[in-house]
């Protein structure tokens, strides 16, 4: 059953089209990542789903509600982890979790939650005194204090050090093991790859690719890149179709048949007595696929 169903979502800010026709369908228990650079429209989509922002057009259904019109009963079932930690600095960790927890019909126990996010030693510290990473972990705790069915995580680990990141990831895994649905936005490839069941890459307000982390952007069938340096020689007659020559003489060949292509290219070079300086053969990493998808790849 789809928990989130979005069709043809459009959002304009004045003249700017932040989201231009996005479709999403996310099932219960799924971890879905919206991956994209800053300003791609991820947060706008999430904020529309959370009910913080009104859409311009399209249809949106979350847990059967229209978030723009939904009220208390919708918000009792969702949890929101904001991009920036926004809590009263004067409160202690425990007080903040207590006061926000008191708003929900179901709630997690304060002590257990504090342990879960690894703030046990900071229980009675003022929020003012917490480090950036500790604040984000508190934010995470506040997002799940109401034991929500659906959790929105807007860039949950931005600014985390590697160990805090691992810890945040294990909390998300813990949520999924409890059957929660998670929608997260991130601009980290590895985060999407590690956490998500499915990933949608978003650029300039549109979904440019969608799939599991392994098949994203046709990665498993993607072309191999053969590159080398040419100086003073024409590349005419190079036995491959997809050849590009950059200004500094770097030649890139996209190949779906790397073994054969490499044989033909080296044969061509030997025939003409040309040295292929810096010859390399690479398969694109997930990062390359991602950069290409969002339009910031090699040709940018």
């Amino acid at each position: 059953m789809a928990v989130i169903e979005v069709q043809g979502l459009v959002k304009h800010y004045g003249e700017v089209e932040a989201v231009c026709g996005v479709d999403l369908s996310i099932d219960a228990g799924e971890v879905f990542a919206l991956l994209g650079p800053n300003g791609a429209g991820k947060s706008t989509i999430v904020e529309i789903l959370e009910g913080h922002r009104a859409k311009t057009s399209g249809s949106v259904s979350v847990l059967g509600y229209d978030p723009a019109k939904a009220g208390r009963s919708y918000r009792e079932r969702i949890g929101i982890v904001l991009q920036e930690t926004a809590v009263e600095e004067q409160l202690t960790v425990k007080e903040a979790i207590d006061v926000y927890g008191s708003m929900y019909p179901k709630r997690r126990k304060t002590g257990e939650l504090i342990e879960l996010v690894g703030l046990g030693e900071k229980t009675d510290s003022r929020i003012k005194a917490l480090s950036g990473g500790q604040r984000r972990r508190l934010e995470l705790a506040l997002g799940i204090v109401g034991d929500p069915e659906l959790v929105f995580l807007d860039e949950p680990t931005t600014g985390f050090d590697p160990s805090a990141r691992r810890q945040a990831w294990s909390i998300v895994e813990n949520l999924t093991s409890l059957g929660k649905t998670v929608l997260l936005t991130t601009h980290y490839m590895d985060e999407a790859q590690y956490l998500a069941d499915r990933v949608a890459v978003i650029a300039k307000g549109q979904i440019v690719a969608e799939g599991t982390p392994d098949t994203l952007g046709g990665r498993e069938t993607a072309s191999t890149l053969i590159t080398f340096q040419m100086s003073g020689h024409s590349i005419e007659g190079l036995p491959s179709n997809e050849v590009t020559l950059s200004e500094n003489g770097r030649v890139t060949v996209r190949s779906m048949d790397p073994t054969g292509d490499l044989h033909r290219i080296t044969g061509w070079a030997i025939e003409r007595g040309v040295e292929l300086a810096g010859l390399s053969v690479t398969r694109p990493s997930l990062e390359d696929i991602y950069l290409e998808l969002i339009g910031e790849g090699t040709d940018a």
Partner: peptide, 13 residues
């Protein structure tokens, strides 16, 4: 500081 936004996202009327 975004505190009102957080409150708006909770079930608190």
């Amino acid at each position: 500081r975004g505190i009102l936004k957080r409150v708006r996202g909770t079930p608190l009327p």
